[in-house]
Design a protein around this nucleic acid. Structure first.
Lengths: 334, 334
DNA sequence: GAGCGTGATGTAATCGGTTTCATTAACGAT
DNA sequence: ATCGTTAATGAAACCGATTACATCACGCTC
């Protein structure tokens, strides 16, 4: 008389039918007569029966779960993508499993790409080893991507997006335009830097090593970049900067202001991502908006489509970005 | 000859032993002789066998998953708590499932508290119905809590924390101190408001209805509160405000600055949470620091301890907070 | 009335492991 | 030589569902 958990045979016994019939009544009611269906439903109600997903999954050779591999769960940038993913996966009957690739060891990575762990994988971390992931369960990549991994990608054109930012600054009349790059080796950093350089060249603007600052997407690295910039001679340092993330742009502006300078009077700043907060700081930040929720949703949809056996052309989905002009950019001081 | 997935009997056949022995060699090697253990390991290596978790879980009547119920995944406040949870769950061999309680319907909630879905539950949303959650799988509450639900809680003393903030403002010499509350009905809003009122009373300061502004933790609601405050007569409106979240404080400061006023010269501001970004805006925000990662970790540990049959005293864990004084607070202008 | 299609249901195999119980061999003690 | 003990292993039940196949009753056709 303990808290006995009723199973399908308890229901079957009570309803006076076989377990096969109960199973059919639940998953394919049209195969069962009206009368027995009622009986089964009654038995379910009185026993309080609930289906055991694990057993069903075992039989179906699936897990009902999708793993998202994120580089750093604590980074708010990802939470909106995850939100988009969750909004698609939930209604589709899949569980969203989240694994932090920094917390989890590299060996654990293999476990996550196991068919017995998850039915599919969404990769948000481009720094993972391609070898460990190829030929495993179905997967898609979102935002970042792993070079050499054959998986559909849902992303933006980072190179062109960087161009939008730099062109905006050039249009305002800036000629010494700097760039704070993301983490070394990161695919996004590389693409955005390339876009920055492309655009300077196409506009006939000087490309100076001293105008490129190392960063890692974090607030603190933006602050450090500002320290470097502040120490450069005023007549040669950039009058405008494009930073590869909004977080860095925040850190940069904060430090510059703390030294008594003003944005955009003394320096124009463009960020990247359009995280919610930066519209509310002062000055509100000019930035490149990435459709983060949509990226997550589309990635999830493409994965589900694949799992359902749908045709998938393996083509990348490129979502469009938008230059959001706010108050952190202006013409250079004469 | 398709992509046949080897199972335990394939391994057993190749190693010349029974499946029982293979199972033992994997889960309890001391029961198996040195020689057979080697043979099994060899067979595993040549077949490329990997254990099917679903099958094991079925037999063990567990799922290997822990569900975290978050009110809004897109809110960066939660990502750091989740990060703390993930850092404990991963190494312990549990999967972290994340469900957004807004995306998921109320009926889906029941599914998440099912033993066949997850072994345990971490509740981060205090607005869930207690009735739907009582008597289900083991659970703990973190940060927020559901009134009337009997589950161990890991949280801070919100009332006392609000007191820290208000006392700080009073100590600076402010006598008209306002408060922007969180979402109506939210347990945190209620506790922080109570702490605010307590402290005003104990300091003998006036408690005015016009100094209490409705908010909902969001940036935008902080901005709206600023609009209201700006329209109040300068000689009666608060000279200092305590806001129930950093996001609201950001929105408030941004709007105030946009109207040409300066913080803290014209108004002092204290936030709540200490999200990373607000140390970098200008002025850097004075706030109450919540140990978010630790909250997540401890919640996860308490849940695991319970699942392992450990004694759990059902007592709440109260973590301490800290007043971080930065530059958004100062003595009132004379 | 024989033959046959159809609908409803039961039997039993199956998914891939774990674990109880039984069996056997080896070894030391009596 | 016999008994008891222990270590190592296999046979088979089991976890809780799904589903291929068999069965049976019914109604229809010719």
């Amino acid at each position: 008389m303990k808290k006995y958990r009723p199973n399908i045979s308890d229901v079957a016994r009570l309803a006076g039918v076989s377990t096969a019939t109960v199973s059919r009544a639940l998953s394919n009611p049209s195969l069962v007569s009206e009368a027995t269906r009622k009986a089964v439903q009654g038995a379910i109600a009185t026993t309080g029966y609930r289906l055991n997903e694990t057993a069903r999954n075992l039989r179906h050779r699936r897990t009902g779960g999708i793993v998202a591999l994120v580089p750093n769960l604590a980074n708010p940038f990802f939470s909106q993508i995850l939100s988009g993913i969750a909004s698609v996966l939930g209604p589709a009957g899949y569980n969203l499993l989240i694994a932090d690739t920094r917390t989890a060891g590299a060996d654990r990575l293999l476990d996550y790409a196991e068919p017995s762990r998850a039915d599919g994988l969404i990769i948000l971390d481009g720094s993972l080893p391609a070898a460990a992931l190829t030929g495993r369960i179905p997967m898609v990549e979102a935002c970042e991507w792993v070079p050499g991994l054959a998986a559909p990608r849902v992303k933006i054109d980072n190179r062109a997006a960087a161009g939008l930012a730099v062109n905006h600054l050039a249009d305002l009349g800036h000629s010494r335009i700097g760039h704070v790059v993301g983490p070394a080796g990161n695919v996004l950093s590389v693409a955005r830097l390339a876009g920055y350089e492309d655009t300077l060249r196409s506009r006939g603007l000087p490309l100076m090593q001293s105008a490129i600052y190392q960063g890692d997407f974090s607030l603190e690295s933006g602050r450090v970049a500002a320290e470097v910039w502040l120490q450069q001679p005023q007549d040669t340092r950039p009058t405008a900067l494009f930073l590869a993330s909004d977080a860095m742009a925040c850190g940069f502006i904060g430090e510059v202001q703390r030294h008594g300078l003003s944005v955009p009077r003394d320096v124009s700043v463009v960020g990247f991502d359009d995280i919610e907060l930066i519209a509310h700081i002062s000055p509100p930040l000019t930035t490149i908006r990435q459709p983060r929720t949509a990226i997550g949703q589309i990635a999830a949809e493409r994965l589900l489509n694949r799992l359902r056996g749908g045709e998938d052309t393996d083509q990348d989905t490129i979502l469009s970005v938008e230059l959001i002009i706010r108050a952190s950019t202006a013409a250079p001081r004469l």
